[in-house]
Design a protein around this nucleic acid. Structure first.
Lengths: 357, 357
DNA sequence: TCCCTGCGGGAAAGGGCTTTCTCTGCGGTA
DNA sequence: TACCGCAGAGAAAGCCCTTTCCCGCAGGGA
């Protein structure tokens, strides 16, 4: 690879001058030398060594982002928001997928710190795991001590600036909607138990049911992976255990799509026989049939806010931006079926045979 | 940020020794010193400066990847394949989204070159744009001249190693299927005209139609963005121009989903009134209703092969891996409706009023 | 006893760039 | 004419590591 001194030699100038021309430094350089340098750059196809530059320059500019998985629409949307602000400010983003592995998350914090990022954004659910939380906090605090900025999205563990979707209210909204439609026998297709997102959404849901005089027994909750197949399996398990269920809340839209698939496979019409409510309102939600009733989170906006916080001025006290959830009524949630209205929740195992057909 | 010499000073050793301990060098260090260094590292929360390391080490290890958009399922799948191999070999991936902007693509080649990546993978369609192609090739060639490896996925322009999905055969498969189901009035919802992927798929489709004695006039093709909304708009335009259409080929699944949405909005049942065939077989294809008939491309495998090629031994002659397309029959393609069998394609504008209702 | 070997450790030379500091030569002022 | 100031260029000092090279010392063989 050609180096700066190759360019300088070819142009017959010093490396200092070449550097000034290439970086558009404020120090003036005569047109003649400038042209010679530019010509040499073109001839040698010179590209500055980014590592050398970053090492030599004092100021850090890139921003590190840790998400569970960018190709998951939830994070894709958040990332879109992050990108928008970052691009406006000429910042490079380094995006890492932790695939919901806490250890990998810890590693990535180190990696990004090593890459001298100016700021760090952690998006996605936190974990119910004190040892992990403590370790992560230690690392983040150490990073902040050296001037790094940190913002978390949708996580409780870090005590600094945060952008929080209102998961609890979202769960509440889903629960209230179903209760008002007359449902009592409601099953929950939940994400991994260890994620705070799961438990927050569940808590809101439980509250809504309680306000309507219903409870949510553990056997009506199935924990599975936060994806389509997890949703499909959990729905099958739920239905096997309790064929009288009239509604299912899936704790994210991917799981809801899996639920829809299972229901279709068992010829249980939605919403005539079973209602389904999703969570997140990812783009595909409106395109499944029937279109998915779900809880919308302002994902892009969450990204925008997080990046603005992290690049903005430092605040004396931690700022927490809570963004509201909103119920989007489409076609998967309907009134409780007539024959179920009285008996629901009272004969949980009666017709198992039918339902698994 | 703590530096290596901070660690060394604290441990009372030389930076050389500290470095050896931290990197697990083959040179032996006594246990006592080792422990002192490790303790200092922990106390200072030391993380090596990645840029300094990369500068000091001679060998380059990271691999650069340029895709149109990782959150697009097409690229998400390819990336999954790339990751799998890269992780096995302990390589870091730097993934950049060009968002189908040729200029950005060029910039990213430079950026990645500047970051000293050991290899470069460009995935996604090429462009029908000679000036761009020439520029890109120049840059890639310059990069290869300095020892960099390059593999392209699904692009014609570069003359080195390549992994190619058989887009043309895929188009042919879609066309043949519809012809065999009796369709003659077939509309095409195409991606941007400037992409070679679009024209390749179109060419295969055209060939299939020709073999069945049909042609594909330009007004039966609508070019739009390669996404859901593009597909929806193009389908609407197609139907407005020619309400007698009995089948639609969408050149990717996102567009097919848009087509399905438009058709649903116009109450044209699929496949009874109009058949739809997609392309790519992205995961969601099986979850829409009716499940999408589409052409599958082995996306993950394409990623695996590309990464294997780029990290494997250099070949004397360019290698081109062509991966076959496969028709996946689901529920959106059916026989041509009865009343259309004779008249189709002969009265293009007759019933516009009805169809747009 | 002397020399050689090998081990554990440090000194120092880069790696490619930015940036401060220094130097030269010119035009302008007293 | 002598001096000052400044514009434009180069020299050189880092930035933080890795790694080669070298050194001192202890142990073993002759």
């Amino acid at each position: 690879m050609a180096t700066l001194s190759d360019v300088a030699r070819r142009a017959g100038v010093s490396p200092a001058t070449a550097s000034r021309v290439i970086n558009g430094s404020s120090k003036p350089v005569t047109d003649e030398l400038r042209e010679r340098v530019l010509a040499a750059v073109a001839e040698l196809q010179y590209v500055p060594n980014a590592h050398a530059q970053l090492l030599a320059r004092s100021h850090r500019s890139a921003v590190g982002v840790i998400v569970h998985d960018v190709s998951d629409p939830y994070f894709a949307e958040i990332t879109r928001g992050l990108q928008r602000v970052a691009t406006d400010q000429g910042r490079l983003l380094m995006i890492c997928n932790s695939y919901r592995d806490p250890d990998r998350e810890l590693e990535y914090v180190e990696l990004l710190r090593g890459h001298q990022v100016a700021a760090l954004i952690l998006a996605g659910s936190g974990y119910h795991d004190d040892a992990f939380t403590r370790q992560l906090n230690e690392k983040l605090t150490a990073y902040e001590a050296t001037g790094g900025r940190v913002v978390v999205i949708g996580r409780h563990e870090h005590s600094g600036d945060a952008v929080m979707p209102d998961n609890r209210s979202g769960g509440y909204l889903a629960g209230r909607e179903l209760c008002e439609l007359g449902h009592r026998a409601i099953g929950v297709v939940a994400g991994p138990r260890i994620l705070t997102t799961t438990t927050d959404r569940l808590a809101g849901l439980r509250q809504a049911l309680a306000e309507h005089g219903h409870d949510l027994p553990e056997q009506r909750i199935r924990y599975a992976e936060f994806d389509r197949d997890g949703g499909a399996e959990a729905t099958a398990a739920l239905l096997d255990a309790d064929p009288e269920l009239t509604a299912i809340v899936a704790l994210n839209d991917s799981m809801a799509i899996g639920a829809l698939a299972t229901l279709r496979g068992r010829s249980m019409p939605v919403p005539q026989r079973v209602s389904v409510v999703g969570f997140d309102d990812m783009p595909i939600a409106r395109d499944v049939t029937p279109a998915l009733t779900t809880v919308r989170l302002p994902l892009v906006d969450m990204g925008v806010r997080a990046m603005s916080l992290v690049l903005g001025a430092e605040a004396p006290a931690p700022r927490v931006d809570v963004l509201p959830a909103e119920l989007i009524r489409r076609d998967t949630a309907g009134p409780v079926p007539h024959q179920q209205r009285e008996t629901a929740a009272s004969v949980p195992h009666a017709r198992r045979g039918d339902a698994t057909a």
